[in-house]
Simulated scan of single mutants.
Amino acid sequence: MSKYRSNRAILVLEAPWELDADDANRTSVLPFIEGIAKLTGDTEVHYANFYDERSFQMALDCLCKGTFDSRTVYVAAHGYRRTIGGMDIVTLLTKIALKSKKYHITGVMLGSCFVGEHATSMEVCLQESRLRWCAGYASESNWLEGTLIDCSILAHMSALKDDVFDDRERIAAELAVAIQPFRADYPIGDDYQRHPVKLEDSLRFVAQPRGRGNRARDVTSLVWEQHGSA
């Protein structure tokens, strides 16, 4: 019997959330992402937990197997300042970038608080990799609302055809479509001083089109302009 083969995969790397004292690894983004896969019908979900830098590398190695036309990575973990799940954002993104060419990884969704404020670090890590986009939050992100936004981005961006990634404005336009169901002025979470932050002031985007000479750039303002004009 021939083996069924999907064309796309979403690689989910998740750290324990411990949202309350009784959360014994109860909370997870996995059911939400599995819903995306069932909706599209042509996407596999590969999932692993991580706890530190060493286990993140092991999890990533484990998930990067098989042959797919494209993969998208979803890192779901607590974030604070420059760290995601206790790892420095540059270290984490560099590990993904190094895998991107061989395993056709096109984008990264960082489902973590605060790390989106380091858009420059995203740009540096995407540079000269196969990664075409990266998104993250520059403030706290309420768990459920943030997960739903992440899912919308992952569902839309993982289904795109390759030619979209030839043009920076097209990438930004597709990111804008992905977040269209969500209000720009919705208070997604607080800043470090406990002041509420609107979604448009938190969710950041970096894009790197294919082609020699194209560099990774912050396209946040372009995405939100397209969102507002739709």
Rank of each mutant, 00 (worst) to 15 (best):
E145Y: 14
T83Y: 05
D185Y: 10
S158G: 01
A176I: 07
L126C: 11
A76I: 03
A21D: 12
M109L: 15
S28A: 14
D185H: 02
A37T: 10
V177L: 14
H156F: 07
V115S: 07
D23K: 02
S152R: 07
K102W: 02
A216H: 00
A48W: 00
R183C: 14
V12G: 06
I188F: 04
L11Q: 00
T94Q: 02
E18H: 15
A76V: 04
W224K: 06
D201T: 10
N7K: 14
A9C: 05
S70A: 08
K161L: 13
L13G: 05
P31H: 02
F165M: 00
S70E: 06
R54E: 13
F114H: 11
E123Y: 11
A173F: 01
L19N: 09
V12T: 06
R183K: 15
P31T: 10
R204Y: 08
G228N: 06
F56C: 04
L39R: 15
D201L: 12
S2T: 02
K198V: 14
K38W: 08
A178C: 11
I96W: 07
G35H: 10
D185V: 10
C64M: 00
Q57T: 11
M109C: 14
L39N: 15
V12R: 01
P16H: 07
G66V: 03
Y4D: 13
E225L: 11
S129D: 07
C113K: 06
T147N: 10
D167V: 02
E169Y: 14
D167W: 04
A172D: 11
R130V: 00
E169M: 09
Y186R: 12
M58R: 15
L63I: 07
D20S: 02
I153Y: 01
T40S: 14
A77F: 05
K102F: 09
C151Y: 06
V12C: 08
F114N: 00
G228Y: 03
V90N: 08
E225D: 13
H227P: 04
S141P: 08
D150G: 09
V219Y: 01
V223Q: 00
L222P: 07
Q193A: 06
H104R: 13
I89M: 11
R8I: 08
V219I: 13
E225G: 09
Y192W: 03
A207Q: 09
L63C: 02
I153G: 04
V45M: 08
E117P: 00
L30W: 01
D88Q: 12
D201S: 13
H46F: 03
V177W: 10
A155T: 13
G213H: 11
F114D: 04
N25M: 15
R183N: 14
G146R: 01
V29S: 15
L19S: 12
G35Q: 10
S100R: 10
I179L: 08
V45F: 01
S70L: 06
D166Q: 10
R215S: 15
R132G: 00
L11E: 01
M109G: 13
M122V: 04
